[in-house]
Design a protein around this nucleic acid. Sequence first.
RNA 1: GCCGCUGUAGCUCAGUGGUAGAGCACUUCCUUGGUAAGGAAGAGGUCGGGGGUUCAAUUCCCCCCAUCGGCUCCA
Length: 649
Amino acid sequence: MIKITLPDGAVREYEKGTSALQIAQSISEGLARNVLSAKVNGEVWDATRPINSDASLQLLTWNDADGKETMWHSSAHLMAEALEALYPGVKFGIGPPIENGFYYDVDLGEHTLSPDDLPKVEKKMLELAQQKNVYNRKEVSKKDAIAYFQEKGDEYKLDLLEDLADGSITFYEQGKFTDLCRGPHIPNTGFIKAVKLLNIAGAYWRGDETKKQLTRIYGITFPKQKELDEYLVMLEEAKKRDHRKLGRELDLFTFSDKVGMGLPLWLPAGAALRERLQNFLQKAQVKAGYLPVVTPHIGNKQLYITSGHYEKYGKDSFQPIRTPQEGEEFFLKPMNCPHHCEIYKSRPRSYKDLPIRFAEFGTVYRYEQSGELHGLTRVRGFTQDDAHLFCRPDQVKEEFCKVIDLVLYVFRALGFENYTAQISLRDKVDRAKYIGTEENWNKAEQSIIEAAAEKGLKTVIEYGEAAFYGPKLDFMVKDAIGRKWQLGTIQVDYNLPERFELEYTGSDNQKHRPVMIHRAPFGSMERFVAVLIEHCAGKFPLWLTPEQVAILPVSDRFNDYAHSVLEELKNSDIRGYVDDRSEKVGKKIRDNELKKVPFMLIVGEEENASRTVSVRKQGETGGDQGKMSISDFAALINREVNERLASIK
RNA sequence: GCCGCUGUAGCUCAGUGGUAGAGCACUUCCUUGGUAAGGAAGAGGUCGGGGGUUCAAUUCCCCCCAUCGGCUCCA
């Protein structure tokens, strides 16, 4: 008999060799029907795999991330089976589960596959799924595994096998398909009830562009058709929120081939939004002791030789600008830190001066490969909400705490309620690639972990993800429809202070090297605005939105009154405009609804006579909120704006 | 940069081996209206660019360019 410990602490006894699925059946038949896989002593196993010794056990269902992963991994195998049935001779690369679904990289040989072919594959997958084929785990020797794939002629699997140790190789087999796979898998294909293949893309074998390009097919599956339908609705919603589409519809920004790809042009409404965001952060930063600085858009080659960026990125970057007479070389600045280091060096610093915090909304230019450009999220010219903190090693933790406060303030102000932090530390083993002393690294890593814990952040620690110059903390937010974005970042840097020979005089009258911290709560204005647009679907918070009210005269006769209302509102710092086109109110309401202006004020005979406005709120059908005096309306708006900003302090 | 899809009016999109169409937007006129589209007329396109096949190419072929979906990269 073996002892099985369940998550609630209960211990049950079973025959040796009992599987998780059988244990589930002993608890409840309904539970057993939903078990996809199981966590045995912290490791995810097939639910059908016999357990031979005492173990802790957690049954995994569709409600567990690991359960979903198992399902999608099995779905990749199912897709492979379907592809093999439809396109004999197809070869397979890798087919892992991903955050939303799975993919499989395949070599179709003579065949080609277009999106039009996907429904056919989906149909085949469902057909195979209904056979409820069991996923059989089989341990094989390396020799047999190689023989199998040699016979099959699948060089990719053979390539993978080279890296695997004999004795640890397993095959999974379902229906007519056998794959080299570590597993685990769901009990049988019958769990897969709904299938959608989403898109096709090229992907190099092992991500190496010198190797052959395979066809990557992305898909997702669900245990219920309804869940697939909901997922598809979510995708539709994401499409509607696409910042590139909304950016055009709301006249926020545009691109021009003549100006150059990846170089956004901010239209008046977008510029207003962006400027408001900047002012908001600037104000918070000044309050937090930051010192705004301004630096030019180009820097001498020498600056980047000193910083080390020239060596690392020089050839891949934009080419230098040369002065006509002297032939001096300048680069468009790809980051602000070297300039800020020189500001630090502009005079001797004392330990009493630290920390020093230089902040700049600095526009930088980076060469991004053409295929990588994407709306505002991936551009060649963008403005960072940058700042560099120079401090003593013993101040790192406190500075981190302060930056975390600032970042969370920003998130709350903009309605990002759902966020996590990723702490990136050194690789646990390989430490050769990191610059800086062991002592400083340990101190900084510890400081970050403590600061995050003190601020109650939900964190994940990733080893080996630190930059060569220091550990970092990145913020990931979840937007209104559940997508994750990486926004703010805080990074420790030991490299630049060294390279620029930054110093301060300590209380011991000796020279010391300051620690530098890069940080950007937004990341970049461009990326942040893009995420914000998609998060709020273009309906910006009242304090931020480019236009707060649209005044709609019922007929031309009331245009004068409408303009006088606007003047009065402007005096109360409210932003708006009069829609004085010769159109019917219904038309004006529709157009302004689509522009997502938060408030519409309808004015006509009655309002003119009583010096009032009829208020309509955006997004509420039949949204007439009744009449109100102009000053009451102004007070209403200002109260809403101030309360919102005051409540998040 | 690589692979694949796409490229027709400002936007969304039809369509054809015989040099083009709709809706919205725009302009003008009529209409002066009460909570999500009033009516009429007009203007607007070297059908992404270049080359080829053809009597004739927006349509077929090739090469570029750009978009989109991925890959790779990301100070």
